[in-house]
Design a protein around this nucleic acid. Structure first.
Lengths: 145, 145
DNA sequence: ATACTGTACTAATAAAACTAGTACACGTAA
DNA sequence: TTACGTGTACTAGTTTTATTAGTACAGTAT
């Protein structure tokens, strides 16, 4: 169920995060269902338990899973909640960017103009690229479990 | 005229960039006026010419200065053009963020809602902090030239 | 108690960022 | 041309950061 490419430049713990996100978004993992244990997954993927733990920690920070010490890790989000978590992340980054922009002394209207412009550009860029690659990070996996 | 802190964790070349930005924004440097030569500034600040060159390269990428090989580096921007350059930078980062957001399949209205929300938060945060520190990166300088 | 669970701390390794050394290319003025 | 100014490309060394692994500890359930 987990696809990991050990030779990818993408950190292993991030690949695990991506896998869980994907499974959660597709509904393969149900809310409140238990994820593989830190040790169990570490053995399966031939990794150090701490690498898995770090991935789970990242997922917890993103609000996708919750941890019960001594019990295990569990999926917190339905796919709609997953979307919400992603939006939260977008909002945080947007907030940082906006703070810097406000320092320039620009008015709110100008900010919104830029936001609209960004959407325009991004949308064009999206339509410009034909059906090329998916936006999954890595798919040339070595091992599937 | 240049304030450099050699013990700051902020890279030297970025400190130079900040200095030029600050001087340009305050109108100390006039448009099309010549900046210190790469070698000259390197000697003054006891740096390698390449470090200064990298700073100038960064400034050129931001549209703040232009380079005439064999002649020197010159300030391109009036303070209004400086603002414009900063806006360009904001727009680029906004564009990247927006592209990722579009991948979630969300509509334009939702994006704009988030943008407005970000402004709201950032503005509150701005008003929340009293007159604390300036938003200059480093001011505990060792050397001034 | 035992066997499972997650986590904190430290250390070793890999990767990247930053700065400096050196040599080269272009432009201007004598 | 020659000399001296300018910026730049390429390489190497150092420092810093990110990533992963080793080990030991703490909580929970049977």
């Amino acid at each position: 169920m987990f696809s990991i490419d050990y030779r990818s430049p993408v950190p292993l713990y991030l690949q695990i995060v991506d896998n869980v996100e994907r499974l959660a978004a597709r509904g393969v993992l149900q809310p409140d269902s238990q994820l593989p244990s830190v040790r169990g997954l570490a053995v399966e993927l031939s990794l150090n338990p701490n690498t898995v733990s770090r991935a789970y920690g990242e997922l917890e920070a993103r609000g996708l899973i919750y941890s019960l010490p001594g019990r295990g890790n569990f999926l917190a989000a339905s796919s709609s909640a997953l979307l919400q978590a992603m939006e939260q992340q977008t909002l945080r980054r947007l907030h940082m960017l906006c703070s810097e922009y406000i320092c320039l002394g620009q008015p709110r209207e100008r900010w919104l103009t830029l936001c609209k412009e960004a959407w325009q550009q991004a949308e064009n860029h999206e339509n410009g690229k034909e059906e090329g690659e998916k936006h999954d990070r890595d798919t040339g996996a070595d091992q599937t479990l």
